[in-house]
Amino acid sequence: MSAIHLKSLVKRFGPFTALKTMDMEIADGEFMALLGPSGCGKSTTMNMIAGMEAPTEGRILFGDRDVTQVPMGQRGVGFVFQNYAIFTHMSVRQNLDYGLRMKGVDPGPKTAAMAELLGLTDLLDRPSAGLSVNILQRLAIGRSAIMEPAIFLLDEPLSNVDAAFRAVMRTELKALQRQFRQTMVYVTHDQLEAMTMADRIAVMDHGVLQQVGTPLEIYDRPANTFVASFIGSPAMNLIPGEIRGGAFTAPGVEIPGFAAADGPVTLGFRAEDAQVAASGEIQAPVYSMELLGDSSMATLQLGSKSFAAIKAAKDFKVEIGENLAVRAPARICHLFDAQTGQRLSGAKP
């Protein structure tokens, strides 16, 4: 069991800066998701925690132990790769107990127990080469978990498995972590995985840590427009406009009740928070309608290039181009600085 401290971590590849001064604390036994689009520096961060890459500047501590200079084999971390990295010339059993055998430990009943836990018992003596992607990913997780590492690192482990299996694995991974109580760091670009599994989420973009918080904090109080647009499905509506006398105005939008100072701002609200009504703060023509199954999604056109998605009942019917009124009071709205995109106070109470 071990906490992870990242202190002023910087990683440069030649002239390219992959990670800009990252400070982060991951508590002992915590499930932390590193979330961001491709190239945001999340995998680089993970590789530095694992010891696969050395940081250009800064230090990494596991608990009190400074591991910045410790080679990866001696850090005692488990690592699950996106493409499983299964040793295809070995059987399932040989893959599972590989780490133990390398350490000169007799696997004993551990292999069977881990196989049981992951539902691999019937496959133990099969060669691993011809197995399905889903099984391979389970095997990769088992191979790392069997070492009972204090720190478990997973690099997009579910991005190659099929959608139905992904849901199963989300539940299993969470259960696995509850059972072993390791510190888990999980890299993903899928906000759904991060939201459902993580204790806390670290959202990253362009090598900069944007926000760290519980899934609810990130969802409810995004620190900036990037986090707001990255978290949630659909992304938060972001509407450029301005505050004048405590009211936000933009084409088709007039929302009173803000405490912010006058000037240009970006307004944000979530599709699921707004409601179609007889009259409301937003009045705009319908640009498109999508049926989602349990609900439908109306996209309104505000001005020439600005759109807003609104969730409606699944049997909601409206003609394209027809004007729609939407209730979007100030209490569901977020305000962001028009230039920096940073969250402004004076929006949600």
Binding site: V77, F81, Q82, N83, A85, G99, M102
Partner: peptide, 18 residues
């Protein structure tokens, strides 16, 4: 050959030669 396969073994404490 994917490097991850070697890295996986390295993480588990293998030496480069091994």
């Amino acid at each position: 050959m994917p490097r991850e396969i070697e890295e996986a073994a390295l993480v588990e404490g293998c030496t480069r030669w091994r």
